[in-house]
Design a protein around this nucleic acid. Structure first.
Lengths: 198, 198
DNA sequence: ACCTGAACACCGTTCAAGT
DNA sequence: ACCTGAACACCGTTCAAGT
């Protein structure tokens, strides 16, 4: 409405510095302590007061979404590389693994992502990456369906959920890699058209 | 070691009363606020000090495990009823739904259960129900494998994980019932031998 | 316009003092 | 032997005071 700084093109230098410091500190803390890390500690490490953190990122989700942006872009970059594989079935499989790794970036990440997956709360900033990734998954699914390797009843969202589940299980540490592989195989065998290669 | 009350057969009347009151209050709070509810509030509602709660249940998991015991027994009761179905494939399917409901008893329950699933921490009291339920699942799986409807590579633990995942997804509210059904169908189609009924 | 940091609320957990 | 509840530590969040 007014000529406030909201849309201004020249944020003050200290504002930019604070934002960058916050993002860097947040990423470090998310990596080390998971998404539930103390925001107070993040602010302290960024060298700002807690109020400054809340001004820049009004919720934990907003901070998370900002930190995730880089990773989402990297994932999209991989998307093009994967698509070049030619084999739609193989591409879908690879994509699901890439998704899973994305969900495993920080301990506890699947939880807030799932909470944002259904766009019930339009204010949740995590809805953005969820939408993008679900849409991308859907493209892979449809490509594979066109070649007849994936069942028609499967939706991209279903496999988005499945990949998130596997990442969640991995994060809880409830399984070794072998059990995870059996689970992945079970899911793959679930979405594939019958009569395929084992 | 000593003649302490640890093994005594006659717990003091107030001890029994406190324990019962704590369990009842805890169940109410778990139901209403999920497994992360304030233990301080539980103690207050039970009419005891926080110290008393910690004396009876040294960790949140211990309290949870005690509250879950009733439900586990109910589930085992259902197990016998389900087994009477005759059709091993149908029985497995029903059992997995019963498992899923068990995991959905309290919001946030899948998380601590998964953390206890792999018996890495022998002190975790939640390992007990996990072991029982995994073993039970394995029996259903093997019965179905004998009739040839379930793939040989599937283990009971895999489906235990899968059921827990579905409950977790349901708990995050990320989906409507329709998407959950697609997911359940995907899992079923994943563990079933190929060439079966759709 | 933005930052600071004190202040408030809330909770988990412990432990000295009681009975 | 068990209970009580004050006390400590920690964190999220807000907001009056500063620059």
């Amino acid at each position: 409405m007014s000529a406030s700084g909201q849309q201004g093109r020249k944020p003050r230098a200290d504002v930019q510095r604070n934002r960058a410091a916050l993002l860097e500190a947040a990423q470090r803390h998310f990596l080390r302590y998971g998404v539930g890390t103390s925001l107070e500690a993040v602010a302290k490490e960024a060298g700002v007061g807690p109020g400054t953190l809340y001004r820049h990122f009004p919720t934990r989700e907003a901070l998370l979404a900002a930190v995730l942006q880089t990773r989402s872009e990297e994932l999209v970059a991989r998307q093009e590389e994967i698509a070049r594989l030619g084999d739609a079935d193989k591409a879908l499989e690879q994509w699901l693994r890439a998704l899973e790794e994305y969900f495993s970036a920080f301990s506890g990440l699947p939880e807030p992502l799932m909470a944002a997956a259904r766009a019930l709360d339009p204010g949740n900033p995590l809805t953005v990456p969820c939408d993008i990734l679900t849409t991308a998954t859907d493209e892979y699914v449809r490509a594979a369906q066109r070649t007849g390797t994936v069942r028609e009843s499967v939706q991209g969202y279903d496999l988005f959920l499945a990949a998130c589940s596997v990442a969640w299980i991995k994060g809880t540490g409830a399984t070794d890699e072998e059990a995870l592989n059996r689970l992945r195989a079970l899911i793959a065998s679930g979405y594939r058209e019958r009569g395929d290669q084992m």
